[in-house]
């Protein structure tokens, strides 16, 4: 493992890991809002569906989910004949899909916590101003919940970064994938340690980013 080639590979791998992290986090966050709303909904059927969703994705290992989507779905001809197949058959989009669905279940719990933490008084104030349910959520509750849930969200993002390492098990050459390629070529564990160090740096950067966000979004007392 020497020279510019190795450096390039590690850089590429890091970029892929970050790409998976950013896309799956943003998409997961968007998907999480309706799931969280379903979780706190008054409609029982909706609550149960959201509960099953969150139970399945949080209660089973990500590795099993990844293999279920990547190898398992190919069992069904209906999937193979569908217009989604050209996307699903590629390793990276398939991994992205799995990571997004998985993330949505975890973030939905965080969003739910955020919604429940919005003080009752603000809800009542919105009602007394004559705001409807949709407006109350859009203007008052969700923005407040977003600020309240930032610390918990930062934890989830760090955990998600570490979870992306599993993409290497379905042929994606992310940071761990690159390290494993070098490891099996040179019979040396050094590349694994290098990857570990890069993950630590990324973790640190995520923590910093969220601290900046928290200060920016803090509500003046």
């Amino acid at each position: 493992m020497t020279g510019i080639g190795a450096l390039d590979s590690f850089l590429d791998g890091t970029l892929i890991s970050v790409e998976i992290l950013v896309i799956s986090t943003l998409a997961g966050l968007i998907l999480a809002v309706p799931i969280a709303l379903a979780r706190v909904s008054d409609w029982t059927a909706l609550r149960i569906i959201a509960l099953i969703w969150s139970g399945f994705f949080r209660g089973t290992p990500l590795l099993v989910q990844l293999f279920l989507f990547y190898y398992g779905l190919a069992q069904f001809d209906i999937v193979k004949d569908s217009p989604f197949w050209p996307v699903l058959r590629e390793a990276l989009p398939c991994a992205l899909l799995t990571f997004t669905l998985n993330m949505s279940a975890y973030v939905a719990e965080v969003v739910r916590g955020g919604i429940l933490a919005v003080p009752r008084g603000e809800r009542e104030a919105a009602a007394s101003l004559g705001l409807g349910t949709v407006k109350t959520y859009r203007l008052i509750i969700l923005p407040r919940a977003l600020r309240l849930m930032l610390p918990a969200l930062s934890n989830e993002v760090v955990l998600q970064l570490k979870a992306t390492a599993l993409a290497s098990t379905v042929t994606v050459l992310d940071l761990t994938g690159v390290a494993r390629r070098f490891e099996s070529k040179d019979y040396s564990t050094e590349p694994l340690f290098i990857a570990g160090a890069i993950y630590i740096v990324l973790t640190f950067l995520i923590a910093r980013l969220f601290r900046v966000l928290e200060t920016r979004l803090s509500i003046p007392a």
């Binding site: 979870a163 564990t189 630590i200």
Partner: peptide, 15 residues
Amino acid sequence: RGVPEFLILLICFYS
């Protein structure tokens, strides 16, 4: 806590 569990496992196994 900053390193993926998967990577820690690989490091343990090989080294």
